[in-house]
Design a protein around this nucleic acid. Structure first.
Lengths: 247, 247
DNA sequence: ACCGCCATACTTGTATTCAAGAATTCCAGC
DNA sequence: GCTGGAATTCTTGAATACAAGTATGGCGGT
């Protein structure tokens, strides 16, 4: 597999960057590929624990259940393997990885580092429009009131994403998503507790207040406590659902 | 594409987590898949600019050049698309993305945030063995002396990775790799300047010194300056190689 | 009853084929 | 010479077929 140096490149007839701009402007083209649909389907199913940790997956079975062939399904699997949520042993099988507390700890570190840094950047902005964040807080209250955990989950995500958007580093939030799924599975286990949701909303409020006040240090403390809340419930959850955890 | 709730799961005969431990212990099994080799080959070629930004790729041509079929090649392409370095438009073509300064800025933010956080964690360790770091500094001097840019590149990477290893958050370094390739391409453009390498080594030395002294604040400053050094050369590089840049 | 062996079924990896669509090229007409 | 249109070629997407290897289950011997 030696690389033939210049032969990778194919001579371009027109200017290289031209078509990309068109692709992002003209929205008619990118009808979602089958592989993407399958990935979204599987990723959300794993994140929501509809496919529990440790479950065996069969490419052929999954393919016929989703009414696709193995080819796009495998491309989705490849992306899931990249995240570390799925492992595949050749000629043996594919399975959803168990929750490894080390992975969770690594993900917590990444999230905490990026989120506190983004918050600091957001606080440094001369104007900070927190109205969208206030709306999301109200939405979270409504979800809590009617007991809609899925909707709360979404609003929770949206609030944190909005902080990155204000900071100007939304790209950092996006690249964090695959790794964050390790945290999401743990959070999904802990969410059913009603007082947990209430505590989360209180913390969200404190974070938004700190951002509005430009209190970088205070916000940082709230964010760290927030990020570690789920982490702290890990031992209890492992005791309650031992079959979902590794080691 | 509705999800049939329980039907994803296949009944397990034995305990779910058992085989994974075996797979990581017994090293005979995982002979590298073709898809992985192809990915490594393409990723390094793109990172080293052997495949320049904006180059068109043809699945069929690449497949026959690498002596593989399109199937494993496409799986490698999927992973490259995930990193944002390659874009593929159905029925039109696949190309290596141009260097977008916004992507570079997002990557710089992620790297700076994680690296300063990891450095702080490393400084908090009661014992910090910097001997491996000293060895890498010496190695970098040797590479600089004999003008081996590729080897210097590798030793540079190894030093930063070692800092994460000391901090206990090596996983954070690993998940950062795909995004970091955006920075690597820019760095590759700037490396040929001899004084650049010398300046990098000096900064590396300062960083290691700070870690040995447990000087978290000082190390942070050096790391930030270090991360932004390449970033600062971006305008000049864009002027020199305009065909490699977007917008 | 237990152990070992062999056949079978099932798993993923890879190659090949078919399909759909876009871009280019060539040729006819003006 | 220029313009328009149709055919050809090249692109990726998806499905199918083939290959290699593993685990399982049954069967025969001990």
């Amino acid at each position: 597999m030696a690389v033939c140096h210049d032969s990778f490149v194919k001579p371009d007839r027109d200017r290289p960057g031209a078509s990309r701009v068109l692709a992002s402007v003209g929205r008619t083209r990118p009808r979602q590929r089958t592989s993407d649909r399958v990935y979204e389907e599987l990723a959300s199913a794993i994140r929501d624990l509809r496919i529990p940790p440790g479950a065996s997956l069969s490419e052929t079975e999954l393919a016929e259940q989703l009414h696709v062939s193995r080819t796009p399904l495998r491309e989705a699997i490849v992306r899931l393997v990249e995240t570390g949520l799925v492992s595949v042993v050749p000629q043996v099988g594919t399975r959803v990885e168990l929750i490894r507390l080390d992975d969770v700890e690594q993900a917590r570190f990444v999230r905490e580092s990026l989120e506190t840094a983004a918050f600091a950047e957001a606080c440094a902005k001369p104007v900070r429009d927190v109205s969208a964040l206030r709306d999301l807080l109200a939405e979270q209250e409504r979800c809590h009131a009617r007991g809609d955990i899925d909707a709360f989950f979404a609003a929770d995500e949206a609030l944190h994403e909005q902080i990155f958007a204000i900071s100007g580093y939304l790209g950092a939030w996006q690249v964090m998503q695959p790794m964050k799924m390790h945290l999401d599975r743990l959070r999904r286990l802990s969410l059913p507790e009603p007082h947990t949701v209430q505590a989360l909303i209180a913390e969200h409020t404190a974070i938004v207040d700190a951002l509005e006040a430009g209190d970088a240090a205070g916000g940082r403390e709230h964010l760290i406590r927030h990020a570690r809340r789920v982490q702290n419930t890990a031992p209890a959850l492992q005791a309650q659902y031992p079959e979902y955890f590794s080691s």
